[in-house]
Each structure stands twice: as C-alpha cells, then as structure tokens.
Amino acid sequence: MNAQATALQDPRLNRPEPFTPPLGDGGFFQRDRSIHPPAHAPGYKSSVLRSPRQSLLSLENSVSEITGPVFGHNDLGPLDNDLIRNYAKDGDPVGERIIVHGRVMDETGRGVPNTLVEFWQANAGGRYRHKKDTYLAPIDPNFGGCGRALTDDTGYYYFRTVKPGPYPWRNYVNSWRPAHIHFSVFGSGFAQRLITQMYFEGDPLIPVCPILTTIPDKDALDRLVAPLDLNASTPFDSLAYRFDIVLRGQRSTYFENRTAGN
C-alpha cells in the first residue's frame, strides 16, 4: 500500500469539522513584552527585590484566561465618574478642572464595550488621600481622588476631575513624579487585565521620571502621554485630555462565534 492510500484511510484526515477561521479560537494575541517595562528595572529601585528572575512560563490561553469578571451599571454609583463632585463636602476641589476621555480598544482597533475602567490620582497639590502618604502638601477636603466608569458599546469612557500635581518620592534624593492619573482596565478576559498611568502633554518631568523611563520603547512611552484636546473642552469650565487605551487583541469575540453557529 502506498503512502497516499494509507493517508486516505487515516480517519483523522476526514474529520467532519470545518476548517476554522485563522483568528477564531478566542485566545488573545501574544503579549509583546518589548513594549512593556521589564520586571527588573534598576533605575526604579523598588523593582529590584520585587522582580521575578525566572522565565515566565508561556501558556496557551485556556478558558481560565479568555474569561474574566463581568461588571455592570449596578456596580457603580451615579457620581463615580465625577471626581469634582464624588467627595465634595463644602465646595469644589481646588485645581485645574479637566475632562479625561477616550476609547478602550483592543489591538485590532475594535472598541471594548462595557468594561470597567478605574482611576485614581493625587490632588492638585500632589498629595494623595491615603493614610501612608505623608507629603507636606495639604489634603483637599473636597477631593477623594478616585473614580470609575464603564465603557459604552463603542469602548468610550469619560470622567471629570482636577489635574493632579507632581510630587517628590524616594528613589533618588530628588525624584519627582510627573503629573499622572493611574488607570486600571479589565477587558473581556483576565489575560487582558492592565494597570497603567496616564501623563500630560508637555510635562517637563516626563523624560526624567525613573518609573516612566522603565519603558524601553519610545513610542510605547509616548502613547502614555495624553494630548490636550481643546475640541472636547467645555468653554469657561474645563480643559480636556484624550487618552485611548489599547488592550491585547482577541482572536475572536464570543459574539462572532455565536453567529457562526457555535
């Protein structure tokens, strides 16, 4: 019997399952670690004792990674995306009023809908409302410094706040953080989970920040800097900054799978 006849009798070669689309298995695109800061970045001293030294073990995405927590409007309160009002006691917080808005997308450019975005920041003087922050700038009695939003059907989110101030921290004796807002984003699967920081266009502290410069890729660093967006500002009220966030691409969505008959 020749090799071809043997092959034709192999039942594995006549399976009834259709050939599936190349981007259809539901996993996420492999993470490009070259655009992320390495775990061990000695210029940011805290990373030295807190960085794993063994190789990460690469896992093909299983159901444990392509699923993740689902949130809804029931999880949020009406003022959660308004940092000017969500902790106000006897007036508005001090500082430059700003709107921050943008889209959460995946690497294919699709919006990530109904995903939870959380944000926190220092007040206009660079002081955090946190029992461990002892910087001499005063707490603002009307500013909590945190909020959250769900993206809409297109991945769009927005919130209102005051621009945070820069502040000194212990790394070198004269290290200052550029003004920044921390972001936590979920996506649709736990493997997309991301925490990052947004910076402000034109801040002279950006190129000398030991944390920001842990990012080895100049373009990736620039993508953390939000441009001033005058078109979205509210005249005589608030300036606006635009910050789009990109999560890992997904090789399909469950909606697409459903329409395919699965």
């Binding site: 992320h36 920001l212 373009d219 990109v246």
Partner: peptide, 9 residues
Amino acid sequence: YLKETASQT
C-alpha cells in the same frame, strides 16, 4: 494592528 498600552506600576 494597534500596540497594547504599556503597563506601569
């Protein structure tokens, strides 16, 4: 393709 947003601590 777009690039993933870089992580920060």
